[in-house]
């Protein structure tokens, strides 16, 4: 007898799938009450994110039309077209988007997942953190008890958990810190770039402690990790970016958005150069986004929240398989 196929079944239970639907309805009501407009943007784009740590799925369009034979990329987040809407005068917007990231699979990663992304005009990253806390608290009410939210700078979490200053430490100092923490040092860690060392320490030594019983916002990231956030001219300059953690799970990433087209182009080119240095293919820049920024992005803050992870925490699960109808290996 052939083995019985049970992989056709959903891996999430019905209670969890009903919870997903209920949380989506709550999110839509939350934004409707605040007059934030729901939008939809293309999943397939001619441009792709250049961040060397993000890998876009690519496919080819076979026509008809001028794009015949063109390589198109599935988006890793709807950020670029949403910023084009903002520059075109949309006002505050949100989107519940399915996004795709190649090479990311594990307990807390599925190569496709649902992002809730929203932009608020006139907000800075701190005011947006207030709103994120309000929404997440509402979504978890009655499901996961939360103490008052806390805000810690990137510097504070490193000082608190490891006793080092992430903005001033050298590679040698961070390597010594990793040794003291008993970490196995991955082969091939660079001797000339601090960021992979900060990522190692953050993921192994700090993240598991963040957000225990409360929302923990981490803010003001090293300039090299600013991504699409504004830099605040400080000493050292800091990226006005934040991350939200709950029970050791990274839930959201937000920016006080960079509106400077020239600076954005410079960062994209720098990322593409880093890709090439690592033997990766450079990605086509989103010229539409850069043109929109040149016209003018209204001052705003934006955030992307991993919806599946939120459902995971709300349902008491510890892996994404428990909240997806069909995770990647059953897709």
């Amino acid at each position: 007898m052939p083995p019985v196929d049970t992989a056709w079944r959903p891996s999430a239970c019905w209670d969890t799938l009903r919870l997903r639907a209920a949380l989506l309805a709550t999110i839509r009501a939350f934004f409707a009450a605040r007059a934030v407009l729901e939008v939809e943007t293309p999943l397939l784009s001619a441009a792709a994110i250049s961040d060397p740590h993000l890998h876009s799925f690519a496919t080819v369009y076979h026509g008809p039309g001028p794009r015949h034979g063109q390589t198109l990329y599935l988006h890793t987040s709807p950020e670029f077209p949403m910023k084009r809407l903002l520059a075109a005068g949309s006002g505050c917007i949100y989107q519940i988007a399915r996004v795709f990231r190649d090479g990311e699979a594990g307990r807390r990663h599925n190569p496709e997942f649902t992002l809730l992304e929203w932009y608020r005009l006139g907000f800075d990253h701190h005011r947006l953190m207030d709103e994120v806390a309000e929404l997440v608290t509402l979504l978890l009410a009655g499901r996961l008890p939360l103490a008052a939210a806390e805000r810690l700078s990137y510097r504070e979490i490193f000082q608190r958990h490891l006793g080092v200053d992430p903005h001033r430490s050298t590679v040698a100092e961070l390597a010594a810190c990793a040794e003291r923490a008993g970490l196995s040092i991955p082969p091939g860690m660079p001797g000339d770039a601090v960021d992979p060392w900060l990522d190692l320490l953050l993921t192994h030594c700090i993240e598991p402690h963040l957000g225990q019983g409360r929302l923990t916002f981490v803010y003001d990231y090293p300039a090299a990790q600013a991504a699409l956030a504004r830099l605040r001219p400080d000493d050292p300059p800091l990226g006005e970016r934040f991350e939200l953690y709950l029970h050791g799970v990274e839930l959201a990433n937000g920016f006080h958005e960079l509106g400077d087209a020239a600076e954005q182009r410079r960062r994209f080119m720098q990322e593409n150069a880093a890709r090439q240095a690592q033997g990766q293919v450079p990605m086509p820049l989103d010229e539409h986004l850069l043109a929109a920024l040149a016209v003018g992005l209204p001052a705003c803050a934006g955030v992307a929240l991993g919806f599946d992870r939120l459902v995971m925490l709300a349902s008491g699960a510890t892996a994404l398989d428990a909240v997806l109808a069909f995770p990647f290996d059953r897709a």
């Binding site: 961040d51 740590h53 090479g103 990311e104 699979a105 594990g106 307990r107 807390r108 990663h109 991955p186 960021d195 992979p196 900060l198 990522d199 190692l200 953050l202 993921t203 192994h204 993240e207 990790q225 991504a227 991350e243 990274e250 990433n253």
Partner: peptide, 13 residues
């Protein structure tokens, strides 16, 4: 056991 860990942005391990 194999666990994939990645900060919000940056190097994955």
């Amino acid at each position: 056991e194999n666990e994939f860990v990645k900060p919000g942005k940056g190097q994955a391990f």
